[in-house]
Structure formats: structure tokens, C-alpha cells
């Protein structure tokens, strides 16, 4: 690791102040991506700002139509919350299949979405459910939050505080995970709100996105067969050591179909 200063602010304001004043600051939530990145010297921040002691970021608030999750809540906490399991099983299931137990015990919602890894799971849930991101400054609709590869709408001194997930009628997330990292080679989050259907795809492209033709087809007929004749174009899809665009395009359709099946069976 390069040299850096470590700070542990006790309030959101202090944390934001560090972001404003430090030369090249980096926020740390669970550190599960950040610390390996620092070790590989792929990042060289002047200051690391640990959010662990900032009050109010570790919360779950489950209401009938909305599940709110604090930015510093770990994946394990979301996965094991009986309230989340009851209200939004697709979200609990998604959180419970991120990485491995060690990662889930440290990794957080806020860290995941602020990093916006193209193969991360949470962004699919935010887009799929049409969530709202609360920050230290404002509210941002999920559709506006994830802007590009590893980029978000967050300003330099802005900190994610929580996310509101609307509770859908039906939802499910299915991913084909990378055999080693457990990141999504492709993951598809399908949610049905009355007549409105959202289909979010992660892993396939440089950034999480909504698959419009899928949403239209499922809006007409929320069943696996509605996707049967659909062709997903591999254009612009990711290539990595594991798989190429054609394989990913196929997975988008397969995972979406399985997500619809799972959603109809009650989610997961």
C-alpha cells in the first residue's frame, strides 16, 4: 500500500469535511474491495476516511411499501434480517449470495453501490426496484445514480447514507456467478409493481442497465414464455478472462427467465 492518513470521523459532517479538505480522499465502508485495491497499488489516496463510527448509517426500517437500508449495513445483516426476508425476500437473497461469509460480514450496501463495480449485485437491486439513494446532500433516483463503469452521480464530498427500496408485488434476482470471485458474470433482477415491470442487468455491460425489451415483454405477459423468443444482442457486452459477449448475452436471457420463474414462485 502507498502511504495514507487514516481518519475515523464521528459524524457525517466531519466525514464530508475530510472529503472537502483532503488532497485525494477515499471513503472506506466495509473495505472488502478497497483494501485489496490499495494493496495492489491500484489506488493511492492521501486520506482514507473510515465511516464505521458515523452514527445513523447502520439501520433497517421495514414498512409495508418500502424497505430502507442504511449505507453501512453489511450484506450479512441484510441477508439475515427477518424483516427484510419477509418484506423483500429477493433483496435478502441477493445480499446472502454476495461473495463469501467473510465478505458479507464486512461488505456494505453503501460501499457496493458507491463503487459501482460492473459485476456487483446490489446495483441490480437498486435499478430493478427503482430505489432511491439518500446521501448527505440529497436524494437520487437509482436510474440516475449509476452513470458509467465505476462511476456514480455522487459529488466529491457526498456520502451515501441509506437506500429506500420500494416493495414490489413480485421480484427475484438470479445470477450466474463467477466460480472464484462470486461476482455476477451476469445477474438479472426482475420486479413487478402492478402493471409496471423492471428488469435490471448487472455483469453484462460496463454498468448496470435496464433491459427495455424485456420490461415491455414482461409488462404484457409476466411469464417466462414472454422471453422465449427474445434475442439479446451481445454488442457492447463485457469480455473478461472468464467469458465473452455472446456467452453473457445468452446468460442475460437465461437468468431473466429464471428470475421470472422464481418471482412467480414467491421470490428469492
Amino acid at each position: 500500500m502507498h502511504d495514507f492518513a487514516y481518519h475515523r470521523p464521528q459524524s457525517l459532517e466531519d466525514a464530508a469535511n475530510f472529503l472537502r479538505t483532503a488532497e485525494d480522499p477515499l471513503l472506506m465502508a466495509g473495505g472488502q474491495t478497497m483494501i485489496p485495491t490499495l494493496k495492489q497499488r491500484l489506488a493511492a489516496p492521501s486520506d482514507v476516511i473510515d465511516l464505521a463510527e458515523v452514527p445513523g448509517l447502520v439501520m433497517i426500517d421495514v414498512k409495508k411499501a418500502q424497505v430502507s437500508v442504511g449505507a453501512m449495513l453489511t450484506h450479512a445483516s441484510v441477508a439475515s434480517s427477518p424483516e427484510v426476508q419477509a418484506a423483500l425476500p429477493a433483496l435478502a437473497g441477493l445480499a446472502g449470495n454476495i461473495g463469501d461469509m467473510h465478505v458479507r460480514n464486512r461488505g456494505t450496501l453503501g460501499g457496493s453501490i458507491a463503487n459501482n463495480d460492473p459485476a456487483a449485485d446490489y446495483p441490480a437491486a437498486l435499478i430493478g426496484l427503482g430505489a432511491t439513494v439518500h446521501t448527505s446532500k440529497r436524494q437520487i433516483a437509482a436510474d440516475d445514480f449509476f452513470t458509467a463503469l465505476f462511476e456514480t452521480a455522487l459529488a466529491g464530498d457526498e456520502i451515501v447514507t441509506s437506500v429506500d427500496f420500494p416493495v414490489p408485488e413480485l421480484a427475484a434476482y438470479m445470477k450466474f456467478d463467477h466460480p472464484a470471485s462470486r461476482y455476477a458474470v451476469v445477474g438479472v433482477f426482475i420486479a413487478k409493481f402492478g402493471t409496471d415491470v423492471r428488469a435490471a442487468v448487472t455483469g453484462a455491460g460496463p454498468c448496470v442497465y435496464r433491459e427495455a425489451q424485456m420490461e415491455e415483454a414482461l409488462t404484457r405477459d409476466f411469464s417466462p414464455s414472454a422471453l422465449a423468443d427474445m434475442t439479446i444482442s451481445p454488442d457492447g457486452m463485457n469480455t473478461d478472462l472468464y467469458a465473452g459477449p455472446e456467452y453473457r448475452a445468452n446468460l442475460v436471457k437465461i437468468m431473466a427467465t429464471r428470475a421470472v420463474e422464481a418471482a412467480l414462485k414467491g421470490g428469492g
Binding site: G31, I35, D50, H102, N105
Partner: peptide
Amino acid sequence: SVTIDGRLVCACLVLGAE
């Protein structure tokens, strides 16, 4: 693997200062 406040973590991905 160690536990911090009862939770299983990889000690290599925790800063000493934490």
C-alpha cells in the same frame, strides 16, 4: 479468519487501526 465483535472476517482485509 478471525472474529471481530463476534463476526467472521479475513484479518488481511481489516486495517489495524479499525
